[in-house]
Computed example of a mutant assay.
Amino acid sequence: MWTSDGVFLFLLSALVAAQEQISTTSLPAVSCASKSNSSCAECLQNASCLWCAPSKQCLDYPVKNILPPKSVCPLSDARWGVCWVNFQTVMITLSVLSGLLVLGLLVCCLCCCCRRRRRQRVSDDDEDLRAEQQTRARTARQKERRMEMQLRHDKIRQKYGLSKDNPYSRMDEKK
């Protein structure tokens, strides 16, 4: 199985081959067909060439298609850019890597959404806790005010002899 290093090297070598092609544009263009029945390395010196291993043909890459059609060369036998990897392996590797990339992005998005929801729940819980604490504080202040008012009323009752301590005191005074 190909590792990510192997794929990276393939892509890098394809890029280098394409760069060499661009830098050697001043040289007269040699057709790919003239390099047939030679070696893969010699054929792939030109980035626009495709090597078909069983027939040992050097073909112009069919640029109208993304992948070379089976009539030109089967994917398992086609080489482009480098000789040591075929199109079938490249396609499988790129498919798996792109699938992993999409899966990784989805996992990242889901994790971010979950964290945001969790933070929102925590902040909602904090708001509920603050509201509950404010309610408790309000209730405690109300109780204090009631107690103060009750003490004031009791003092006034005592001053005028209307205290609730002895409910029968008024009746004794009238006798």
Rank of each mutant, 00 (worst) to 15 (best):
12 L>D: 00
29 A>V: 14
81 G>H: 00
44 L>N: 00
97 L>G: 03
32 C>T: 03
53 A>H: 03
15 L>W: 09
80 W>M: 05
119 R>W: 02
61 Y>V: 03
153 H>A: 07
175 K>I: 09
110 L>W: 08
155 K>S: 08
38 S>P: 00
129 L>K: 07
23 S>R: 08
115 R>H: 10
70 K>T: 12
77 D>A: 15
57 Q>M: 11
134 Q>L: 14
11 L>W: 00
53 A>I: 05
90 V>D: 00
130 R>F: 04
20 E>K: 11
71 S>P: 01
129 L>R: 10
108 C>F: 13
52 C>K: 02
15 L>D: 01
81 G>E: 00
11 L>T: 04
137 A>G: 00
142 Q>T: 09
4 S>W: 03
6 G>P: 03
22 I>S: 10
68 P>A: 13
37 N>S: 13
79 R>W: 02
59 L>H: 05
160 Y>F: 15
87 F>N: 04
83 C>H: 01
115 R>S: 08
72 V>F: 01
109 C>F: 12
47 A>V: 01
164 K>W: 04
47 A>P: 09
143 K>L: 15
19 Q>T: 15
85 V>H: 02
13 S>Q: 14
73 C>N: 02
50 L>V: 02
125 D>L: 15
151 L>R: 10
135 T>I: 11
77 D>R: 02
25 T>H: 10
49 C>D: 02
110 L>T: 04
79 R>Q: 05
96 V>M: 12
155 K>A: 13
115 R>W: 10
9 L>K: 09
148 E>W: 07
103 L>E: 01
173 E>W: 06
48 S>G: 12
68 P>Q: 10
32 C>R: 03
22 I>C: 05
165 D>Q: 10
122 V>F: 06
161 G>H: 03
72 V>E: 10
117 R>V: 08
120 Q>P: 00
8 F>H: 13
47 A>Y: 08
64 K>D: 11
129 L>Q: 10
